[in-house]
Simulated assay, not measured.
Amino acid sequence: MIERITATRGPQPRFLYTPCVKSGPMGIVSGMVALDPDSGTLIDGDVAAQTQRIFDNLLLALPEYGFAMQDLVLARIYTTCMDQFPRINAVWERQFADTPPPARTSVGVSALPLSAQIEIEFMFHRG
């Protein structure tokens, strides 16, 4: 059975897509950019601030998605700022200070929706 979930906490989708799709123990969270949870607009700030906002938004939604950070098995990072990847990585490392990190792919791109500097998609498995 496939379950499509839009969390009530955090920013709402700005386009037509499902934020989280679950099938059995697997869950895929659509790529997230750094939207302010109240206004739904892209936050001001550098790539580190945008990275942190993405993780903050993910943490807001996870209870409704039925997953925890310990269930995260894969993250795909897309960024227009590969030259600033150490700043992205510093935020990443804080998120996983107490939890083993998932597998990760990082890709440099020329543009992202809403002129974001970073977008991250997530895959979860609840065993």
Results as ranks from 00 to 15, higher is better:
Thr105Val: 15
Thr79Phe: 00
Gly127Thr: 11
Gly66Asn: 13
Gln95Asp: 03
Asp56Ile: 02
Leu58Asp: 03
Met32Thr: 00
Ile77His: 04
Gly45Ala: 09
Arg87Glu: 14
Val91Ser: 07
Asp44Gly: 14
Ile54Cys: 02
Gln12His: 15
Asp83Ala: 12
Pro11Val: 08
Asp71Pro: 03
Met26His: 15
Ile54Ser: 01
Pro113Lys: 00
Ala49His: 10
Ala97Ile: 13
Thr6Gly: 10
Ile5Arg: 08
Cys81Phe: 01
Glu121Met: 07
Asp71Ala: 04
Phe85Lys: 05
Val29Asn: 00
Val33Leu: 02
Ser23Pro: 06
Thr80Trp: 00
Pro101Asp: 10
Asp36His: 09
Arg53Phe: 03
Gln95Gly: 05
Thr79Tyr: 00
Ile5Gly: 09
Gly24Met: 05
Ile43Asp: 02
Ala61Thr: 08
Trp92Val: 09
Asp38Phe: 13
Arg104Ile: 12
Pro102Ala: 08
Val29Ala: 01
Phe55Ser: 01
Leu42Cys: 02
Asn57Gln: 13
Asp83Glu: 13
Asp44Pro: 06
Ile5Ala: 09
Ile88Phe: 05
Glu3Gly: 08
Val47His: 02
Ala7Asn: 07
Gln52Tyr: 07
Arg104Cys: 13
Phe67Tyr: 14
Gln117Gly: 03
Ile28Phe: 14
Ser23Gln: 15
Pro37Thr: 08
His125Trp: 15
Pro25Met: 13
Glu3Tyr: 10
Ala116Thr: 01
Thr99Arg: 13
Pro11His: 04
Phe96Thr: 07
Ala90Leu: 08
Gln95Thr: 04
Gln117Asp: 05
Met32Ile: 07
Ser39Asn: 11
Gly66Tyr: 09
Gly127Gln: 10
Asp46Met: 10
Thr79Ser: 06
Ala48Tyr: 05
Asp36Arg: 01
Leu60Asn: 10
Glu119Cys: 07
Ile77Gly: 03
Thr8Ser: 15
Gly45Gln: 12
Asp36Glu: 11
Phe96Met: 10
Gln12Gly: 11
Ser30Leu: 02
Thr18Glu: 09
Asp36Thr: 05
Met1Asp: 14
Gln117Leu: 13
Leu114Glu: 07
Ile5Gln: 12
Glu93Tyr: 12
Gly45Glu: 11
Thr6Arg: 14
Val47Gly: 00
Phe55Ile: 05
Leu60Met: 12
Gly40Ser: 12
Arg126Asn: 12
Val21Leu: 09
Leu42Tyr: 00
Leu72Val: 04
Pro86Asn: 11
Gln52Gly: 07
Thr80Ile: 04
Val47Cys: 04
Asp46Leu: 06
